[in-house]
Simulated assay, not measured.
Amino acid sequence: MKPHLLLIDALNLIRRIYAVDANQKHHSDEQMIQTCCARVAHACKKLLDTSNATHAIAVFDGDKSWRYHFYKDYKHSRAPMPQVLKDALLHFKAAIEETGIVVFEPINDEADDIIATLAFKASNNQITSTVVSTDKGFLPYIGPYITVYDYFKKLYLDETSIKERFGVEQNKLVDFWALAGDKTNDIPGVKGIGTKSAQQIVNNYNSIEQAAVDESLSSSIKAKLAANMDMYVISKHLVSLRTDINLGFSLKQLRLN
């Protein structure tokens, strides 16, 4: 059997399952957490079956990634994790490990960067991988060896769904987000450039630099680009996932029994 790597964005999966279970009637928080842990474990088993994975890992977030130091307002408006869930994370990790999947929690790095690094390293060795997440940040990395699966919608995301959702080609996503910003993560983008203007720029030009010097581009858009190019660069760094993190473990250690 050819190796296939299953990469689970652990908190992405857990928080969405928790959000549903927290709205159900339970006798106690403890009972709710037990139910939620069981559902997460069930999801992991289903993912192992449907992906035909030979190797698997569920990655959690570290404390503070480089993005928080690089840009002080990164995710500053995001609601904190519910305390009940935060206190129960050890139970979720144990539930995932019982399925045979390795659990990894870096000290500082975000799960997205760890997963992107693993997928990138695997693809360089012509090993396929499935990323399980609803986070749009993985979409630019879809390719012959990397697929992204939405467990809740039960579908694999592709270039067609990307174009329908964002109005730009997959290879223009990073520039699009760097221009338009990303409110969910408090990434600023270029002040005054909204979704439509960002789509126009990335769809009509090979680069932002080319757009900035084109005489036919709207003078107001050119002025905004000229005045806020530093925020475009900062935003592009923030929306780009790292693929070069030193992980400290090998693919062999992720093999399923």
Rank of each mutant, 00 (worst) to 15 (best):
S220M: 04
N185A: 05
E169Y: 11
K196G: 13
H237P: 00
D175M: 02
N203A: 13
Q170H: 05
S218D: 15
S218Q: 04
A212V: 03
N228P: 01
I208Y: 13
L238W: 10
T147Y: 03
Q199R: 14
V190N: 06
S219F: 14
I162H: 02
K183P: 07
Q199D: 05
K222L: 13
D186V: 10
W177G: 10
L155V: 13
K191P: 05
S219V: 14
E209I: 07
S218H: 09
G181P: 14
Y232G: 11
N206T: 12
V190Q: 12
V213A: 00
Y232E: 12
N203W: 14
L238H: 14
N206W: 02
Y151I: 06
L217R: 02
T160G: 05
G192T: 05
K224P: 07
I193W: 00
G137E: 01
A227R: 11
F138M: 00
Y151E: 09
G181Y: 13
T184C: 05
N228F: 14
M231H: 11
E169R: 11
Y141P: 00
P140T: 09
N185G: 03
T195K: 15
I146W: 01
L179P: 12
E169F: 15
G167V: 03
I208Q: 07
K222F: 00
Y149A: 04
A212D: 04
N228C: 09
Y149H: 08
R165M: 10
Y141E: 07
G189M: 07
K222V: 08
S240G: 06
K196T: 14
K153Q: 15
K183N: 11
A227C: 10
K222G: 04
E169W: 01
L173C: 09
T184R: 15
I221G: 10
F152Y: 00
A180E: 00
Q170I: 05
A223H: 10
S197K: 11
A227I: 02
V239D: 10
D175G: 06
S219W: 03
D214W: 07
A198R: 06
A178V: 05
F166D: 05
Y141W: 01
K224V: 02
S218M: 05
F152G: 08
I142V: 11
N204K: 08
Q170L: 05
